[in-house]
Every structure is written in C-alpha cells, then in structure tokens.
Design a protein around this nucleic acid. Structure first.
Lengths: 359, 359
DNA sequence: AGTTAGCACTCTCCCTTGTCGAGTGCTAAT
DNA sequence: ATTAGCACTCGACAAGGGAGAGTGCTAACT
C-alpha cells in the first residue's frame, strides 16, 4: 500500500485535527493545516479516494471526514511524529517516582506509576507486575512473644519480608520455637511453592514430633505467601477520567469499559508488547475484547531486574493522541524499570531519546 | 408539628411511591395506594396543604408531587416502617464476613464490609476505622541477615506486626544488633508516637555511641508506623453504582460526588452517629458539604473492642429507600463489630432485632 | 492529466410551532 | 368536610423550516 505523499499529508492532517477537536474535518480545514497551497476542491478529491481506500470515514454525506481504524493504523505506523515530553512532564514523572522509591514499597511504586500515567495521559491506566524468576524463602525466624503467642517472620528471595502473629492454644516455650525455626530454615528455604508438598510437611511434623498442627500452620503461611507474591498484581487507576472525554459521555459505554478493566483476569489478557521499552498499540476493532472494540489500548513493558517484569497500559478512545501517550508510557516504564531493578537511588532517570513503536 | 393522620398517610404514600418509581406522584396514584376510600380531589387539597407546609414539592404546576427534604425527614422520623431483611440478605452478609474473618486481616475485613454494603444497597459505601486507645510498641526485634542487612520487626500494642528490611552501608555484626534491640526494647516500648521525641532519639544515640544514623532510621520507622496505624483508614467502594440511578445520569453530578468521596479528609468529616448501632441519616441540604446537597448520607457506627471503632456509610440520592438501607447498615455494622472485637470465630452473627434511627 | 472555481445538493443542528396527556386549582353542589 | 366537574398549565414529543457546513460533480483552466 503506497500512497502519494500528498495523500499521506492529508491523512495526517485529518488525524491530528480530529484528535484535537473531536469534530469531523472538512476540506477547508485541511487546506489551512496543510503547508502546501492546494485548493479545497483538490483536497476533496483526494479525501474521496482516501475514503475509497478505507482510511477515512464519513459520518454522513455532508460532514467532514474522520479517520477509520485503518487510518489510525497507517498514521501510527508511518505518519506519526515523535512527541517530545515537556520539561514539566519529565520532571513530574521523575520526582513522583523518586519520591516513592524512597519509601521503598514495591507494590505502591507500581501503583503510583499507574496513577501517574493516568493523570498525565488523562486516560484510565493499568499496571501489572509479575515475577518471572522463582521465588523462594530465604530465611525463617520465629519470635517468642509469650507462651501462647509467637511471630513468624519470613524473608523471601526477592527481599520482601512478611510476618504473621500466631496465637496458639497449647503453651510453647522458647527453646521449642528455636528448634522449630532451625528445622524450617533447614528444610523450607530455597524451595518454590510447588515443592512445599504435603509429604514434606508431614515429614517435618514427624521429625519435630509435632501433633499440634503447628508445622502445618507455619507451612501454610509459607505457601500462601509464595502464591500471593508470585501471582500477577493488577491495579487500575483513573477510571473516572473516561468521563472527561466526549466519546464516553454515554454512561453505559463508559461503564462497560470500567467494568471490563476491573476484572484482573481480563486485564492480563490485554495485548502486550514483545520486549521491554516497546510500545504496543491496539486500535479499535483490533482489540479482541468486544468491550474495547471502539477504544484503543497502549501498553508498554518494563523489566525490573531478572526476576520481575510488568506492563503499564492505557485505555482510551480511538481518537487519541497516540504519540503523546506513547511518549509518556515509554518514559514512565523506563523510569519504573530502573527504580525497581537497580534500587540505585542516586541514579537519576535521564531524559529519553526516541520512541520505538511496535505494531 | 402535628399533622392529621390522613396527611401523614398521604405523605407516606407519596414518599414510598416516589422512591419506587422516581416519577412525581399524582393524586390519582395516591388514592390507589391509600387504603381509605377518598376521592382524588380530596387528596389534591391535602397535598396542596402539604406543599404549603413545605413537606412536598411540585416540579411544575401540572405535575405530581415529590417529597421535599423536610418531607423525607418527617417520613424518616415518624412514618417509616421497619424493613425486615430477607433471609438471602442476612445469609449473604454473615457468610461474606465470616469468610474473611477466617483469613484474619483486619483492614481487608473492613474493606469487605464496605463492598458488601455497597453491593447490597446499590449505593457507594465508605468504611472508616480508627483507633481510640493509645497505640504503643509492645516489642522490638532486629533480625540479622548478613553484615549489611537486617530486618526490623515491631509488635504493636494492638497485635499488629510490622517489619522492614534495612540495607546499611557500614557492616554490622550480630552482637551489635542484639545490643541495639535490647536498648530499643528498654526505651521505646510502651511509648505513644508523641513521646518518641528527638531528645529521646539523640539520648539513645549517645547511649549506643551510634554515629551512623542507625538509631535515627529505626526510630523513624517506629514513628512512621505509629502514625500510620493511628490515622483513620478510609475506603470507598462501589462508586460506579451511582450511575445506575436516574438522578445521577448527569455525568458531572455523579463525578462531583465521586471526587468528594475519594478525598479521605472529607470523608472523616461526614456526619457520624453518637453511639454504636445507631444510624445517622442526613438528608439533602442537611449535609454541610455542597457536593452532597442533593444526596443523602446514612452512617452507622461500629465498635470493635475498647480500642477501635469505625463507621460504615452509604451515599445516595435523597430518593432512597431509607428503611431498607438502614436495616442493611445496622446488620453489617453489628456483624463487623462482633467479628473485630471478639475474634470468637465460632460465635455466629445472630439475626437482628429492630433498628433505632437517630436524627 | 491534474487542478480549480462554481454551484446544486445533502445532512445536521437548532429553533419554532402544534398537539397530546397528565395533573392541577377552583368552584359549586352535596 | 367532601366531591364532581371543568378550564387551565406545563412538559414531552413530533413536525416543519431556515441556516450553515461540507460535499460531489461538472466544466473550464494550466
């Protein structure tokens, strides 16, 4: 599919104008936008051909043109210019992320990245993270509080610490706790969740001569932990910003999308790019999900060290400033990746070069 | 203010009909609703007087009547009949709460109560909790991981356990950690947040001969914890259900309320009942906040033991089935209170008696 | 052959007009 | 005090018409 240079310019003008105003674009407006001096009539002829090719659409006979999904696609693939983030934007992203980095909580950092994305793009954003590497228990401590109470503290291989206060019915003395913890450190560290089997648990029970079910409680806590940490975390933010856009003034339409986004399972099935830093753009009917048929999704992957990666994405109307949103996404993903993997808090996020867009 | 019995019946009929249909109620409809055999004309006269008294309103000359805020108030205070929860409802509440009780997380139990409230009432719900008693540190442990890493584990007086993994730049050996923890246990336990002063911190630093700022880091963590736990937690759920009601079809109006609810500070300033189990109903303009001027708020207080209490509330249109919502709220609050305070997991929540409504 | 001006045509938007029905307020009779 | 009757008011809805924006087509121009 090779269009004349002029057709491309007209298509670009229509897309950019329409993204800006949300009104069908007429031939006269295109002439104004276009640098080249051609008449409205010429542009009309060209636009008629673009409709023929399926790149533009006409809401009705005597209205201007709007881009079709295929038109957006072509625009995104070939015509889109790189959007340069403003100083304000880069500064806000860097400072927001660096601030949270200080407080240290991984999940809240990812959440914040989502919120930030939503705020800057004015569209709902979602953030997923998942662990790729195996997570195991690195270390195990039992703290004696009183004879009916102790605390389990578990250090995971990804440096997360989890704890649980346990009340028991039959008294227990400190030496017994120490023994318990020694055994657990010996036999439960370094194991992934699947390898903590019932066989292992009952073997441990026998070794410790435990009839009170204490071993089972502690082992259960470990399994729960490992499952929880391994499973992908999804968080959506800024759902309400949908209503700020004219295409979602219809409450039902917006609600369908918000409902869709609130389902974690569905989120994980959204399109995702092949590698870190790439941006995957899915336009209107390219979306498999019915609910998103007239919306577009942009997603970027971030890598945080070897054992963790995730996705940040945005959902909005097909009439979206793809270039601007892509630039934001890419910058945030890069920053997040650096913060999560390095943990080198002194290293500042640098300004970005250019954006690679992947189909 | 004493109305004739018939006026009261008419008012009740108008309120109940309007709550049901959301359409202004005409004299003919009232006659149908009313048991007594009177003509439409009589009802018209009566309704005209009720308008005079400010209890009913007329959207325009030739429309039916709708209740004014004062009308709702009178209805709630004097005319409302007690709503009996259905078996399904009580069963759903009990099982949802008991289920989460098992998993043991306090915050998530409160959250779930909010979600449940929202789902059952079909209105957005909020849930707050706050500690009334003083919270202190009950116990203090430092776990040695390697010479550059240790874990702080803190047991609070309300049985919460918190931890933090700390990386340090200058190496530290286990004996030093033990010493640190002994000193902290001696001087930081039993203190409320305000009593951890900079003076205390520097005194501790001197006592331990600490120049590395380690004491400051640990003390900072303690202060942070105590603040976090003391401050009220607020969670809103079901915001989107607003859109299911005709009075919030206007996106802007609904958005204003949702925005209002998303501000934790404002939530804590919402009206709250005097004592546990009472329901506080605030109708339309009785609300101080402008954003809620044409909505109503129902809130119930729950007590969970001596040192914790909270609020569950619901926001909806003034045209609301106050009786039904109040019954749900009261039942949920009672269940939540029992679960949080007793922790006696075997004791089932019993069916409720009657509801006391407080102005 | 590509480009342009001119012009009739089409369609939406918005305003006005007219009709219908629900519900009222008033009056006079019971 | 209650009721029947009746004129009146107002919103909802459909129909009609003018204005404006933009198109498609044709014929002339380069």
């Amino acid at each position: 599919m090779s269009l004349t240079e002029r057709k491309k310019e007209i298509l670009r003008a229509v897309v950019e104008q329409y993204v800006d105003t949300a009104e069908p674009v007429g031939s006269k407006t295109v002439v104004q936008q276009l640098g080249t001096a051609v008449s409205a009539a010429t542009v009309r002829n060209e636009m008629a051909e673009l409709v023929e090719l399926g790149l533009l659409e006409q809401p009705h006979t005597s209205a201007g043109r709007i881009p079709s999904p295929a038109g957006y696609r072509l625009y995104v693939n070939e015509l889109m210019r790189r959007h340069k983030l403003s100083q304000d934007d880069t500064r806000e992203i860097s400072s927001s992320l660096n601030l949270l980095q200080a407080s240290g909580q991984e999940q809240s950092l990812i959440d914040e990245a989502g919120r930030l994305t939503s705020r800057l793009t004015t569209y709902p954003a979602y953030a997923l993270s998942s662990m790729t590497g195996d997570i195991t228990i690195a270390r195990f401590d039992l703290i004696y509080v009183d004879s009916f109470t102790f605390i389990i503290v578990v250090l995971l291989s990804n440096d997360l610490v989890k704890n649980k206060l346990v009340h028991i019915t039959s008294p227990l003395q400190q030496p017994q706790l120490v023994k318990l913890s020694t055994v657990f450190n010996a036999s439960f560290t370094g194991l992934t969740e699947e390898r903590i089997t019932t066989a292992l648990i009952s073997a441990t029970e026998r070794a410790l001569n435990d009839a009170s079910g204490l071993v089972a409680v502690i082992a259960g806590f470990c399994i729960e932990l490992l499952c929880e940490v391994k499973s992908a975390q999804a968080r959506v933010s800024g759902e309400l910003s949908l209503f700020d856009h004219p295409e979602y003034q219809d409450v039902g339409k917006a609600q369908r999308i918000i409902r869709y986004l609130s389902d974690d399972n569905k989120l994980t099935r959204l399109p995702s790019p092949e590698s870190a830093g790439e941006i995957k753009i899915t336009i209107g009917p390219e979306n498999l999900a019915d609910e998103l048929r007239d919306s577009s999704v942009l997603a970027v992957r971030y890598d945080a060290g070897d054992d963790m990666q995730g996705l940040i994405g945005v959902v909005g109307p097909t009439r979206m400033d793809y270039s601007r949103v892509a630039a934001h996404l890419k910058y945030i993903a890069q920053g997040l990746g650096e913060l999560l993997s390095g943990g080198i808090s002194d290293k500042k996020i640098n300004e970005l070069g250019d954006n690679d867009i992947e189909e």
